[in-house]
């Protein structure tokens, strides 16, 4: 499956990925255009998380190409990948926080590692936490947060460096319907700001709700291949 438009932020070409002797993905081609909104669906174990990891350089394809911002991941050093990740915000299903740091420090972590003066960004940080509805919880430690708060905090951390792309892996997997709608609204807002959004989910209700707010393409991983999902979605 491929997008024939010229500009792209992430491009996968004839990609295959094997792990432990089995092929997880095969002959996958895709171009994510700037400002596009994509959903990635498929059954559990289909390879959605692997697909996302390939998109942000955490994995290298067994064959084929992954180009991120026009650079082949095979040609990137580890430091190059680190630099690239500052332009790609990633939200994991399990969020992955540093449990010994309060929420605001976790959200500011991309600023810290990029060498920004976090104190100088305090106002922006407050605005971001307010946007996610987390300002009152700024000093809470991650284990003290609810599932929804953790997901919103992970989203805030993913976007704090104003990345070009936001990749979210089951961002609504651990939250109720109301919270998933709230998270979706935040992701749609990001897309309206020009960010490319790719959400891996098996929540068809979320996809339907999104399609009412934004022009989204739905991709499905089935039998190791990437397909454009049917119109029933």
């Amino acid at each position: 499956m491929s997008d024939r438009t010229g500009a792209r932020v992430i491009e996968l070409e004839n990609l295959a990925y094997s792990y432990g002797g089995g092929e997880l993905l095969s002959d996958v081609s895709l171009k994510l255009a700037p400002g596009s909104f994509h959903f990635l669906t498929g059954p559990s174990g289909a390879g959605k998380t692997t697909f996302l990891k390939l998109c942000y350089g955490a994995l290298v394809p067994t064959s084929g190409f992954v180009r991120i911002f026009d650079r082949d991941v095979r040609d990137m050093s580890r430091d190059d990948v680190a630099q690239i990740r500052r332009r790609i915000g990633v939200v994991h299903q399990d969020c992955q926080f540093l449990d010994h740091l309060p929420l605001y420090e976790n959200v500011a972590l991309p600023l810290t590692v990029a060498g920004f003066d976090v104190a100088g960004e305090a106002e922006n940080l407050r605005d971001l936490l307010a946007w996610c509805g987390l300002e009152p919880r700024a000093n809470a430690l991650p284990p003290q947060l609810s599932g929804g708060e953790r997901q919103r905090a992970a989203l805030a951390r993913a976007v704090i460096l104003s990345p070009d792309v936001v990749l979210a892996d089951e961002p609504t997997g651990n939250v109720d319907w109301e919270m998933s709608q709230r998270l979706l609204t935040l992701l749609v807002e990001l897309n309206r700001m020009g960010k490319t959004v790719l959400i891996a989910t098996h929540d068809l209700g979320l996809i339907r709700a999104a399609k009412q707010q934004v022009q989204a393409r739905v991709l499905r991983i089935s039998n190791r291949r990437l397909q454009l999902a049917g119109a029933d979605l």
Binding site: R78, Q83, I84, R85, F97, L109, V113, A114, R157, L161
Partner: peptide, 9 residues
């Protein structure tokens, strides 16, 4: 986590 947010080695 540090790698996820773009920390270099």
């Amino acid at each position: 986590v540090l790698r996820l947010v773009g920390a270099e080695d």
